[in-house]
Amino acid sequence: MYTTDLSGKDKKKSEPTPLKQEDPKLLAAFEARVANDEFIEPKDWMPEAYRRTLVRQISQHAHSEIVGMLPEGNWITRAPSLRRKAILLAKVQDEGGHGLYLYAAAETLGTSRAEMIEALHSGKAKYSTIFNYPTLTWADIGAIGWLVDGAAIMNQVPLQRTSFGPYARAMVRVCKEESFHQRQGYEIMMALAGGSREQKRMAQDALARWWWPSLMMFGPPDDKSPNTEQSIRWRIKRETNDELRQKFVDVSVPQAEAIGLSIPDKKLKWNEARGHYDYGEIDWEEFYAVVRGEGSVAKERMQARVKAWEDGAWVRDAALVHAAKRTAAKIAAE
């Protein structure tokens, strides 16, 4: 989901990146540690490809948290009760906090937050495709919490045991908050599904729009996800895209049924032999288009991020200049 490798998958042929030859002894020792489920810490030796994959994955995860504040932030000022307003504010604030921990974890690998943000704004870095869909009604806030945060949990729980220590520890903090996010979303949906005809319509419509994009969050199918194998070997990932997606479908279907909403998939059916739900074909063309930046509100999302950053430049400058003045005054006084 937030951490799916979205780099260059839409290209016909990805150019082979020249990797530096690693010292075979160091590499073998590293692989042994990872296979032994030890945590790799920032000061430890690591292969360049491992470092690069992690920076890409963690920063992409961080960007997703930050961009993800926008679709939900869109409804804070219109939340229908004081309780819902407070919950949503706290939730979106949590997401910002997740972004902070993740940027900090990525910075331990030698890339600054400013560089990562620059990469996001220039379109070089990706973020989860899910946030390029609009939040049209209040029910979308329910659907996001229930499905999007639900998918996040599915993905992030195994990452608490990912091989890079700072990332794993960030995930432990994040996971503590995610179940609250999922619950508040489902609770919104429950209230709507049990409400008036108009509310029920809102809820059903939100589910219909968010279901497929939520499944896409887990990324391309395993046979089209070439980096999965190495990421699993290095314990950066611990389960494949398709495994996680299946898990998500299996828990979400009964949740929808419990509140009387129907999932927009005619092929959805319990498969006794597999012990899983079968589900229909995902529109991968749409997925790759959104990865390319052609999601329906992708332009608005980036415009909002860039505007906030540029409008805030004078504030960040002032804070730096002020801090420097303070330090100078302190030195002069000594």
């Binding site: 000022t77 407070a86 504010l89 979106v92 910002g96 972004g99 902070l100 505007k307 805030g312 430049a313």
Partner: peptide, 27 residues
């Protein structure tokens, strides 16, 4: 709460949301 997601820096975003949350609670 109108600032949420649009503040000059992530830390400021969190601070403003925090104040908003306190105020909604008081209200």
């Amino acid at each position: 709460s109108e600032w949420c997601g649009h503040a000059p820096a992530l830390e400021i975003d969190l601070s403003l949301a925090n104040i908003a949350l306190d105020l909604v609670g008081q209200a």
